[in-house]
Amino acid sequence: MNLKQTTKIYIAGHRGMVGSAIWRALESKGYSNLIGKTSAELDLRNQQAVTNFYKKEQPEVVIDAAAKVGGILANNDFPYQFLMENMLIQNNLIDGAHKAGVDKFIFLGSSCIYPKFAPQPLKEEYLLTDSLEPTNEWYAIAKITGVKACQAIRKQYNKDYVSLMPTNLYGYFDNFDLQSSHVLPAMLRKFHEAKINKHSDVTLWGSGTPMREFLFVEDLAAAVVYALENNLPEHLYNIGTGKDITIKELADTIQKITGHRGNILWDASKPDGTPRKLMDISKMKDIGWEYSTELEEGIEKTYQWFLDNIDKIKEIKL
């Protein structure tokens, strides 16, 4: 398609961590015709509402950063909602875009779509070769159907529908609620609270041995802009750093950045999740994009943002 600064771009989920980062990245590059709707304005689970939105607004590009997300605990406790709500959201967005004549669609998923014990690092072709991690298979199955829907439209109708699968994300506007957040923001909050509570001990889930890869959300936004401005030759790309660390190393890094001086205790009765989840990022690198923010720098920026916004962060209640 002929992309211009005035091309009408709809970002689904523009208020979330990922969507807001994409919005900022596009604005900074001069894109001036961005559309976003809050969930109160547009319920993406409602097919008719989404169809009406497409008819009225007629976006030329759709970026799907909308999803029901959460950590191990939330996925485990609400399997039906994680499966069904995510399928409703993405099916309405993808099918609605296709029927409305949208030629460019960027679908965002997650590295959890790959099998639990797939060889490391995870290559795009490992999709659907084995069983998933049970603690988040509901979310993963929903995202896999989204990847396949975009691939099917690409194959059958020759449209530029592409799926980007980011590794574990963190950054500005993250969810810091201890009941539903992911490991990095949860740790940041725990260490911060322990520090202001006279450097009390911090108890963390599991053994600390699993390996995890983390990507600063601003880098994912840059990858989305790259996918927007280029016609990617394949339907599925991993987005990450290609580097991972143990959860214990992550804890040590966050402890240092927050200035916490207490003890770290590991609760081995709690689940570890997947033993390792490193992305093979060679496909994206080969076509000209790679990350730019190293982990320590990204955590420092995120912690500063957390401190600056502590009074208004959703669910903070310090």
Results as ranks from 00 to 15, higher is better:
V62A: 08
D64G: 04
A67L: 01
A67D: 02
G70L: 07
I72V: 15
L73I: 14
A74I: 01
A74F: 08
N75F: 13
N76V: 05
D77R: 14
F78C: 05
F78A: 14
P79V: 07
Q81W: 03
M84R: 08
E85M: 09
E85H: 05
N86A: 06
M87N: 10
I89N: 10
N92K: 07
L93F: 08
I94S: 09
A97Q: 01
H98N: 15
H98G: 11
H98I: 09
K99L: 13
D103S: 12
K104A: 10
G109V: 00
S110Q: 05
K116P: 02
Q120V: 15
P121Y: 06
P121M: 01
P121A: 06
K123R: 13
K123W: 05
E124C: 11
Y126M: 05
T129Y: 00
D130K: 10
L132W: 12
E133A: 06
P134F: 13
N136Q: 14
N136Y: 15
E137F: 12
W138R: 02
Y139P: 02
A140K: 04
I141Q: 08
A142R: 04
A142Y: 00
T145Y: 05
G146F: 06
V147W: 00
V147I: 12
K148S: 10
A152K: 07
I153H: 06
R154A: 01
R154H: 12
K155R: 14
Q156W: 09
Q156G: 03
K159Q: 04
Y161N: 06
L164I: 12
L164P: 09
F173S: 09
N175G: 11
